[in-house]
Design a protein around this nucleic acid. Sequence first.
DNA 1: AAAAACCCTGAAGTTACTCTAGGGTCAACA
DNA 2: TGTTGACCCTAGAGTAACTTCAGGGTTTTT
Lengths: 143, 143
Amino acid sequence: MKIGELAQIAKCTVETVRYYEKVGLLPAPARTAANFRHYGPDHIERLRFIRNCRALDMSQEEIRSLLELVDRPAEKCGSINAVFDKHITHVEERMRELLNLKQQMTALRERCQAEQTIGDCGILQGLAAMENEPPHERHTHLG
Amino acid sequence: MKIGELAQIAKCTVETVRYYEKVGLLPAPARTAANFRHYGPDHIERLRFIRNCRALDMSQEEIRSLLELVDRPAEKCGSINAVFDKHITHVEERMRELLNLKQQMTALRERCQAEQTIGDCGILQGLAAMENEPPHERHTHLG
DNA sequence: AAAAACCCTGAAGTTACTCTAGGGTCAACA
DNA sequence: TGTTGACCCTAGAGTAACTTCAGGGTTTTT
C-alpha cells in the first residue's frame, strides 16, 4: 500500500508517517519504480502501535524504549512495566500540578466579582502581588 | 539595576529576560555607556507579573492580552475576567484529558501482573489492540 | 595586572509535528 | 491523445517558550 492509505488506516497524516520514518520510529519501506513508499502489514502494526502510545501522551523517548523491547520478544517484560509505570506517574504528577494551578486561579477569580475598572481589578492586583517562584523544573514531558 | 539582578529578583534566568524583550513582552530598557541593559522599578513589576502568569501556565498570547489591558487601567475589567475564565477552562479541560488517559493506562497496567516474556506481555498486547483514534485536536495550549 | 564574574549578539537546538514550495506520477475522462 | 485532478516526492521553514552555544566585550575582585 502507498503512504496515503497507511495514514488513513492509522488515522494520521502522511506528513506524520514520513516524519516517523525520518526520526527512526518507523523503518523505511521499499520503494516502487516511481520512488513511492510501499508498505506492508508490519508497517501498519508498527504505526498503529506508535499512534496508540502517542494517544496516551507518551514521548518519542518512551515509545522508542518500548519499540526496542517489542523487537526482543523473548526477554522478561519487567522493563515494559517500568516504562509504563513511569509514564503513569508523569500523568499523575501533571494532574496534581494542574489541580494546584486551578485552586490558585479560583482563589484569584473570587477577588473580582463586580465590574470594576481595570486599575482596581482584584485579579490583576492578585497577580501582581504573588511571590515569584523559580520555574518548576519538569521531570515530566507533559506540558 | 543590571539584567542579572533583575533576573534574580524575578527568579528567572537572564536569557529569559532577554527573550521577553525580543518577543515584546518586556519593553526594551535604557542602555549604559557600555551597552548594558539598565532596568528600573517598572521593569521589575512587569517582569514579576509575566512570571506569575507563566507560573499559572498562561500562554504568551494570554499574557499579551492581559498586559495590553493593564496598560489601559481606566477601562472596565470584564475583559480581564474573560481571559482569566478562559484559561481556567483550559486547565480544567486538560485535567479531564489526563484523568481519561490515566484510567486507560491503569486498565492496561492490570493486564500484566506476572513476570512474563515480552511476547506475552498484556500491556503490549493491549497497546497493539487499541483502536487508533484521530489526533485529539487541542483547543488548549497546555501540553 | 590578571582572573573571575558578568554582559553583549546572533544563531541553533529542544518536541512532535505541520506547512510550504516546487516539483514528479498516475488514473480517468473528453 | 491530451489534460485534469489526486496522489506522491524532497528539502526547508515554522510552531511555543525558552535554552544553549560560539565568540566576544566589561567590570569587579584579588
